[in-house]
Design a protein around this nucleic acid. Structure first.
Lengths: 132, 132
DNA sequence: ACACTTATTTAGAATCATTATAAAGTAGTT
DNA sequence: AACTACTTTATAATGATTCTAAATAAGTGT
């Protein structure tokens, strides 16, 4: 199966539920953003059986930890995830609450001049808020 | 009184509680980051009477709407606010969960090349995640 | 295939930040 | 002082996320 390695790599046994979650997350042409509730809905739409929220949370968090998913830093009551794990940034439309990907090439190079002793930079993320 | 204008400007009547909140927020040399719970604690430390959480939320949100406070876009279970409302960015130490201000001069100019029709950029915020 | 150990799924409960409610109090106005 | 509109407050409601413990499934050795 296609996603067994991804699961094992994340420390998870490949179960029916997890493979179904993988299909919804990774079996798509384009990457996308989602909240847990949206993912739950997508899963319900795609397959007939429902998967419990606890399992969805568990699986998504394992993938996030392993870098197969990214959290998008944004203040919202729900956590947003991104299946696009390449370096990239976001527009956030304050009115519609919509998140839009910025390609890395849409943003000029970012130069962080300050260093913190003993720490290294893991990621640099830009959030561009849009208004009308 | 020092903060009456700020309050009126935010559409709030100057009450004892709100003036006390202002003192904790704005009567400091340095700007700082806080969650609502941390602010509640600071207020308890500084004054003897306690202010109800509802009032704190209400006041902080009015200030945020008016631009006297900023929300920091970060994924956390609690919302982080910043009394530094100038354009600036943040380091976030993943291990200690500490937020550190980056001066605007610490980050080179950021060039957003893409435009969205009918929308304008309200803010550009960079979050630099740090690891060991 | 069977028995055994360990991980997983699940529904439901628990937690915790935030928001809503509605009664009692306060500010601003006349 | 009287009146109206806004505030404060304790408490309840909400809603996302995490926890729990019992039932189920996966992996392993025989």
């Amino acid at each position: 199966m296609k996603y067994i390695d991804k699961l094992r790599n994340s420390g998870l046994r490949p179960t029916k539920q997890r493979l179904q979650i993988c299909e919804v997350l990774f079996d798509t042409e384009k990457t996308f953003h989602f909240t847990i509730n949206e993912l739950d809905q997508k899963i319900k739409d795609k397959i007939d059986n429902k998967i419990s929220l606890a399992t969805i949370y568990n699986t998504v968090h394992a993938f996030e930890k392993k870098g197969y998913l990214k959290q998008i830093p944004i203040n919202s009551n729900q956590t947003y995830f991104d299946t696009n794990v390449t370096d990239h940034h976001h527009f956030y439309d304050l009115k519609t609450e919509e998140l839009i990907d910025l390609e890395n090439s849409d943003v000029g190079p970012i130069n962080i001049k300050r260093k913190i002793n003993g720490k290294k930079i893991k990621s640099v993320e830009v959030l561009v808020k849009l208004e009308d």
